[in-house]
Design a protein around this nucleic acid. Structure first.
Length: 588
RNA sequence: GGUCCGGUAGCUCAGGGGAUAGAGCAACAGCCUUCUAAGCUGUGGGUCAUUGGUUCGAUUCCAAUCCGGAUCACCA
């Protein structure tokens, strides 16, 4: 309807005033609530050209549009705004159409989009930063699917390098060969403990050396642990059997731990890539770049690319000793992924601290003339900070993912029990509900914020279950299901001819705008748009619910209409929340 | 220092050229013998960081300044 209004208005204005506006030049808004109407055309832009008063123009446009668009019931002009009110039939028809099975399946874009998300290191457990990453990456993937794209979800494991060796070395030195099983903790946590242990022991060594008169820099260089860990990395690269075996074992523990957390979170992947598999591929690309004269070799042997003409710097792509750096393996990974799936677009869900890195990646692949280069897209999200600033693992301020999830579920349980909501639930049903509510609260808390912005999480304040939250929406859904049960699930999709009241219209409008939001969320890679919209739908429903009786409506026809409206609201909420990765309960 | 991102109510966040700037939390006042009160209705709370500009109109766009953050490795 907005599109139709824009097109018709442009047409009318062009004829009437001899200008040349396209539909994109026309502003159509929702009518703001203090005026009568559903949609509003802004006519200020024509005032100057038409040399008439806004009120006059408004009347001319209003008359013309009313003639051309049969769904328009009436209009009014206020200053430079023409407010159009749509006929009951329009909303009745919408309700019927939207209640049919395939209303919400948007046409295929014939595009294949790859989304990378998660991307953890295999030396410590997942934390709140990963949680935001995973929620965003998963939700963006689902939204893209809903908008008609084929989506491939991939993960990348940073599973090799000096930081991985640190936990391995600490394990070798300080463990009693314990295993996740023997200690009864998750594998990623066990490995993470040794990563921390390495740092602690290293600090002691450095302090000791400094007491003997070394400078801090010297002490760091000469600390036995630092020397040993470098030796271990060399052994790893050389394929030393013992080191590789320990690496396989410890990474195996970590993957098991991660898998458990993924399951709890409810995310999934089509394929996991490992940097240990791709870092060597990057070297082929470096060779390719050299032969194409896109890269050059410095006298010291390091391979570089000059990006100064693009406003960046000279960037090293391979060390003088021939080993690969971070960007090298990303070049290899991108190439492999394109061979694997041939996506039209590759979206990297990575925090904004790596903006520079992805600029370089895109530029370098473009310079190499890679087919996929233009499709590289960095979904750069803001980091999660504490009120005191950045989370720091060394200061122990990192919010652990498993702990946080557990706490959310526990809080959900407490609050639900306090309200006595689960008195006639079976044990399994109740546990499922606590899980859905706890995760719903957490996911919504994260996803309602614009991904691009940094956000603050205060561990002192528990995440809310009231107001603009996941549980509020889940509650709304459960309420709707309850009403439907009370009505014996007995309502027909026959043509309702009902003059909707204000709260019904408000709800219909929100439901009507839903598919727009999906398209916009997909275009902007922004689940927050969807989260906000679902909240408005739930809020509109609750107002409607408070003001109107559904099962006791004055007439059968009205009852049927309201049941149909409630049912549609429920299905849109369920559908939308699914795209955020949030389940909705039938009862709560 | 260069580049990029941000600054909106006490707090957490929407709005990104259009009408009197919105939610939630927190505070206060109402609403359960009627479909689930994790709800609904209302009240108070704002120099949209500052200063200039662009125009019919700027919280929104541009510039400068201030404040916060990120980044500019042969680390990942």
């Amino acid at each position: 309807m907005e599109k139709l209004l824009r097109e018709k208005t442009a047409h009318i204005v062009n004829n009437l005033y001899g200008i040349n506006f396209s539909d994109l030049d026309i502003t159509v808004n929702q009518t703001s609530k203090e005026f009568v109407g559903d949609f509003t055309v802004v006519i200020f832009p024509f005032v100057k050209i038409a040399r008439k008063k806004p009120e006059e123009i408004g009347k001319e446009i209003g008359d013309a549009l009313q003639k051309e668009i049969p769904e328009i019931d009436s209009y009014n002009v206020v200053k430079g705004f023409v407010n159009f009110k749509l006929k009951n039939e329009f909303w009745n028809n919408f309700l019927l159409n939207a209640s049919s099975e395939n209303y919400f399946s948007l046409p295929s874009t014939h595009k294949k989009i790859m989304v990378e998300y998660a991307g953890p290191n295999t030396n410590k457990p997942l934390h709140l930063g990963h949680i935001r990453n995973i929620f965003i990456g998963y939700s963006v993937s689902e939204i893209l699917k809903a908008a008609g794209n084929e989506v491939v979800k991939v993960n990348i494991y940073n599973d090799r390098g000096i930081h991985i060796c640190k936990s391995m070395l600490a394990y070798e030195k300080y463990s009693n060969n314990e295993t996740p099983k023997s200690k009864g903790i998750k594998g990623d946590h066990l490995v993470g403990d040794f990563y921390v242990k390495f740092d602690q022991e290293l600090k002691i060594q450095i302090a000791g050396l400094m007491l003997k008169g070394m400078s801090e820099e010297e002490a760091k260089k000469n600390a036995p642990l630092n020397i040993e860990v470098k030796e271990m990395l060399l052994k790893w690269e050389a394929g030393d059997a013992e080191v590789r075996a320990r690496w396989e074992m410890m990474n195996g523990w970590v993957y098991e731990g991660f898998e458990e957390t993924y399951q709890l979170i409810g995310c999934d992947f089509n394929k996991h890539y490992k940097e240990s598999d791709t870092y060597l591929l990057g070297k082929n690309i470096v060779e390719e770049g050299l032969s194409k004269n896109v890269f050059y070799k410095r006298p010291d042997g390091a391979v570089c690319v000059d990006l100064t003409s693009d406003g960046l710097d000279e960037k090293v792509l391979m060390r003088s000793d021939g080993t690969s750096v971070y960007i090298t393996q990303d070049l290899g990974t991108a190439d492999l992924r394109y061979q694997d799936f041939e996506p039209d677009q590759m979206i990297y869900t990575v925090a904004n601290e790596q903006d520079y890195h992805f600029k370089v990646l895109k530029l370098v692949t473009q310079k190499l003339g890679k087919k996929y280069a233009d499709g590289i897209n960095h979904l750069s999200y803001g980091m999660v900070d504490l009120p005191t600033g950045r989370m720091k693992s060394r200061e122990g301020t990192v919010v652990d993912a498993d702990d946080l999830i557990e706490e959310m579920i526990r809080t959900a349980k407490e609050q639900t029990l306090a309200l006595g909501k689960t008195e006639n639930f079976s044990e399994a049903e109740a546990e499922k509900l606590y899980y859905e509510l706890g995760m719903g609260a957490l996911k919504f808390f994260i996803l309602k914020v614009d991904p691009r912005k940094r956000m603050i999480f205060n561990p002192e304040e528990s995440i809310d279950f009231h107001g603009f939250t996941g549980p509020f929406i889940q509650y709304t859904y459960a309420r709707i299901q309850s009403v439907k049960r009370k009505a014996g699930n007995n309502f027909k999709s026959s043509t309702p001819v009902v003059k909707a009241n204000d709260s019904e219209l408000q709800l219909l409008m929100q439901l009507y705008l839903y598919t727009n939001t999906i398209k916009e969320a997909a275009m902007n890679l922004d689940p927050a748009l969807l989260a906000n919209h679902i909240y408005f739908i739930a809020k509109s429903f609750n107002s409607f619910y408070a003001e109107n009786s559904i099962t006791q409506a004055e007439t059968e026809e009205l009852k049927n209409f309201r049941l149909l409206l409630s049912d549609l609201t429920g299905s849109v909420i369920k559908r939308g929340m699914k795209l955020l990765g949030i389940e909705v309960p039938e009862r709560m």
